[in-house]
């Protein structure tokens, strides 16, 4: 995709070493992530599992450069993230990372197209409006929403909203997509549709790290990391992987409703 890669076969794409994140609120210290070391190769598709409070979101926020570790180091594609200042981090997130959330977090009363354009809107130097528009349109095309450009979030189903959110994450052509429980608000069939999309993107070379509660969903990934009390307690690669496209083909065809969204 972009030509500014500093990759060499020797450096892993994500490299966490002895990472700790401790929250201090008053007298109480919460060790959200304790001494985690982890490497993820380019093109991997990783599920992060664990019970609530085990530190999954904290780990994701660190990977996404939204939060700084209390101790330990984090290198992303060879870059020491700790050394970047606030605006460099914002720039880094904007150009290299894509985020998808459980609650979609689209701007209300704003069309799908404008929502997807948003990450391109405040770039310096400015991207011409026509370029922004065509990139947003093609991202929406990739998630199968070419027909819904002018719809507002309230006019889309939950699954469609999540696909808009994925298009928004895609439009900057990121190397890494981070998704925190992306199917948490969706029904089974819609979840499989979203996973089909992720498997397509992964096949196109994008690295994906995804938090999920459901083993069924984790089964679409290459690798599963299990966390407990801020530590990684297991790290496995299942031999058989679910194929979302094939499963969808086997399911009875139903129209995806465009009713009101889930909360």
């Amino acid at each position: 995709m972009t030509a500014t890669r500093s990759t060499s076969a020797a450096t892993p794409f994500i490299e966490l070493s002895r990472l700790c994140r401790t929250y201090v609120s008053g007298e109480v210290k919460v060790h959200a992530v304790r001494d985690v070391s982890l490497t993820i190769g380019r093109g991997d598709f990783v599920a992060v599992m664990g019970s609530s409070g085990s530190g999954k979101s904290t780990l994701m926020n660190t990977l996404g450069c939204l939060d700084r570790p209390t101790s330990g180091s984090y290198r992303l594609d060879g870059v020491d993230v700790d050394g970047l200042d606030r605006s460099a981090l914002a720039h880094f997130r904007n150009h290299r990372l894509g985020f998808v959330f459980q609650g979609f977090h689209l701007l209300p009363r704003t069309s799908a197209l404008e929502n997807v354009e948003l990450p391109l809107l405040y770039r310096v130097p400015m991207i011409p409006a026509s370029t922004r528009r065509s990139q947003a349109r093609s991202a929406l095309g990739r998630v199968g929403l070419a027909e819904r450009l002018d719809h507002h979030p309230s006019q889309l189903s939950g699954g469609q909203q999540q696909r808009v959110a994925i298009a928004r994450a895609l439009v900057t052509q990121p190397d890494l997509i981070l998704a925190d429980e992306p199917t948490g608000n969706l029904d089974t069939r819609t979840s499989i549709e979203v996973m089909a999309l992720f498997q397509d993107l992964n096949a196109a070379g994008i690295t994906i790290v995804m938090v999920t509660h459901e083993p069924d969903i984790a089964a679409f990934c290459h690798r599963t990391i299990l966390m407990r009390d801020g530590r990684i307690v297991s790290d496995t690669r299942p031999s058989a992987r679910r194929d979302a496209r094939r499963e969808l083909a086997g399911l009875p065809v139903v129209d995806v409703p465009t009713g009101p969204s889930e909360p």
Binding site: H95, F101, Y122, R168
Partner: peptide, 22 residues
């Protein structure tokens, strides 16, 4: 909703831009 801030920061908007635009 808090998620709006989260999402805007994740999209690479600075905190000031997030406040002003989102």
């Amino acid at each position: 909703p808090r998620g709006q801030t989260e999402a805007a920061l994740a999209l690479g908007m600075t905190p000031w831009l997030t406040f002003r635009r989102i």
